[in-house]
Amino acid sequence: MSEVKLENISKNFDQIQAVSNLSFTVKHGEFVVLLGPTGAGKTTTLRLIAGLEWADEGRIQIGDMDVTKSQPAERDVAFVFQQYSLYPNYSVYENLAFPLRSPLRKSSKQEIDKKVREVAGILHIEDKLQNRSTHLSGGEMQRVAIGRALVRDPNIFLMDEPLSSLDAKLREELRLELKNIQVNLGATLLYVTHDHVEATTMADRIGVLKEGELIQFDTPSNIYNSPNSIYVANKLGSPKINIIPAHLLAVDVPETVKFIGMRPEHVKIDESAKLEAKVETIQNLGVEEIISMNFNGEIIRATVRPDEAHKVRDSIKFNIDTENILFFDEASQRVQI
């Protein structure tokens, strides 16, 4: 395991800027998640680190070695692909043994066998070892794909949305397992996803990407509580943060502040409050309710306990935790007050 360092990495595909001037470091034993929508350059970043693409500019360092121009095999990284992950002509056992049989790692038969069985145990696929990789369910396939990375002791694990094609229950299960495995192995892991729940539940640090640029790189709680822009604020949290024009609230703010953001859990329904809105929809999630209300033409969402009886089209009074309000300027950047 090693530290992985990206310095001013840029990559173009024909006319499209996939990644521009990207710099960050994944520390030894750290779980870093890159979060962003489709086309933000997440996968390209992983592929650049793995050596499946050459960077146009910048420098990539793994441990003490400059690998910017190295072949994929020389970098000793493990990659879990989003799809097409298993070699279809091999059994599960052979799929897991394949990386160990590489000419670069001369492992003995016994070592390979021991390692394969150990990893199969961790991922609960011991009884599937002799199956053809085509005769597996989606969840099992993805376990094997992750297993093919785990049999090795690479410098870094790179995972490209490995859970995105699984159903919700399985995704939750594997998410926990993956985090446990990473903690137990002390593995360095760079994980790419567009799912903010995966990001916050697993990451030590999150990098938020937008159109090939790194917008913010910080711990999940800092990203959530102290986003540096509306873009980042929108990335985490469900329901989404409320952003409304600053003039709608009678708060004393500097001239530069144009937008105000508040998380739904900081919007309090209170009969004695001053602000008034009209309930538009109510979503019952069991443990809580999401109330969407119309406040001077803007939709504000509030999460409340479900025992509070509200009806659609009711007039409702609310106030906002002033210490949790976020301020943004015209360019959607955070304004610290």
């Binding site: 499946l52 095999a73 990284v77 990659f79 692909f81 799809q83 097409y84 002509n89 670069l104 093919r148």
Partner: peptide
Amino acid sequence: IPKEYEEAALVDGYSRLSAFFKIILPQ
């Protein structure tokens, strides 16, 4: 044949030639 197969083999420590023989040819 998805190119991910070869990419996986490359990252797993194989040369392009052995990836071709071990993965692509059987496919």
